[in-house]
Amino acid sequence: MKTSLPLRLLNVIGLIIVVAIFAMPFIWMISTSLKTLGETMIFPPKWIPDEPIWQNFMDAWNSGPFLQYFINSVIVSVGILIFQFITVIPAAYAFARYEFRFKNALFGLVMVTMMIPAQLIFLPVFLNLSEWGILDTLWGLILPFATSAFGIFMLRQTFKQVPEELLEAARLDNSTDLKIMMKIMVPMAKPTLITLGLFNFITHWNDYFWPLVMTTTEKARTLPVGIAQLRQVDGGVAWNILMAGNVILVIPILIIFFFAQRHIIRAFTYTGVK
């Protein structure tokens, strides 16, 4: 079936409008980040500043201990990633490949945990952390996410799909369980692990709620919390500085997205696709 030219044109215009709705805000963000404070207060607004003010980025960066925030963000995101691989892989392997007492009950526990959001338990966890003296430390940001119910669930599915024969072949090859897991299962689950890794990294890099709640001073804060605080710098809102800060936060993720679009989309839509 061929559609007529006007219809096709309409379609393309429609697509352009859709892209505009979703891309324009980001362009606006970048545009603002290069303006002077005065230029942000013009109506109708200017899209292209007279002269790009790169200094805004320096100002944003220097308005707080951003190097510290950045390092904290990296430590937290990467730390969570490492912990999760250490805890999720063996658990998923056990759930996929062993029969043991209480297996179903324990897996039920995992599924229940999957449905408990941080927003539900932050208050008691806060009280616990303060009791244990790890409030306002990076540990408080990492340990609660040291494992992932969703990760266990997803990786278990993948492990279950590995043909039984392969594991039997390995057992006959006198392989230890640990070696079966690391040399056969894990390499076969590589796509899932990449997916999980990306999902986790992005989620925790972006996270604002938990670090906001679990930190009381600058020393353990992460980038999103720091950026959110730019707002409170002085009386009025310096939108140019604020947007510059957000560009710093957003650009790395957009770049990753640009290069790994497929993987990231897979990572974030996995649950729905099932």
Binding site: V19, F22, W28, T40, A228, M243, V250, F257, I265
Partner: peptide, 30 residues
Amino acid sequence: VQGAVFSPHIISLVSIAMLWMWIMDADYGL
């Protein structure tokens, strides 16, 4: 287009919130 439409989903809510606060600014917003 699918990628463009999806992109907000992977952006920090901090940025989304601040960006829209600015977009919805009554006087100078987009």
